[in-house]
């Protein structure tokens, strides 16, 4: 038997061993997280109007211009929880808007005693993201100012709901 074949089998064995180890690690990765985020939205059938995401909203739904895929990629659309019990969670902002609060139907269900059931929502307007307080008890803060009207969210600005702090990231 040629030396080459032997070398290939020998190194292949080591590679296979480590492939086994990594596939085991890949399987048990699922153990590390208690919850997982499932996508709930289904692709809309063409021709039907977009359903407003937030039924209780007092602000009329802004007309979202249909953007091309490349354009929507340029806008930062990741909301990260930097502090609070959900720290480390990231959420992708959708064009239909996301709802934050303690109510189980919210997009991001906050586990925060100071948050209201339907606390705030973030939606798309004029090519950027806007946050609006939905009449919450303890208020939504941008930096240190309490929000009284829909306010644009910039990259890096901190958003606080109760003890949970959010940040918009790219």
């Amino acid at each position: 038997m040629s030396e080459l074949t032997l070398t290939v089998i020998r190194l292949g064995l080591l590679a296979l061993l480590w492939i086994f180890v990594f596939s085991v690690v890949g399987v048990l990765r699922g153990d590390l997280y208690g919850t997982r985020v499932l996508s709930r939205v289904k692709p809309k059938p063409p021709g039907r109007p977009a359903r407003p995401a937030v039924a209780a909203s007092t602000v009329t739904e802004p007309v979202v211009p249909k953007m091309s895929r490349s354009a929507s990629k340029r806008i930062p659309n990741t909301l990260t929880v930097t502090e609070g019990s959900l720290a480390g969670t990231t959420l992708t902002l959708m064009e239909t808007g996301v709802l934050l609060g303690r109510n189980p139907e919210c997009t991001l269900v906050l586990n925060d005693d100071f948050a209201s059931g339907r606390h705030a929502r973030i939606f798309r307007r004029d090519g950027g993201w806007v946050v609006e307080d939905l009449g919450s008890t303890n208020g939504t803060y941008m930096g240190i100012t309490r929000l009284t009207q829909p306010t644009p969210v910039e990259v890096g600005s901190t958003l606080r709901i109760g003890k949970t702090i959010f940040e918009l990231r790219k």
Binding site: R36, V37, L38, S39, V41, A53, L91, T96, L108, V109
Partner: peptide
Amino acid sequence: MSMVTSFRPRTR
């Protein structure tokens, strides 16, 4: 939109 569900064990 997405929702957060509790981890449901699978038999695997």
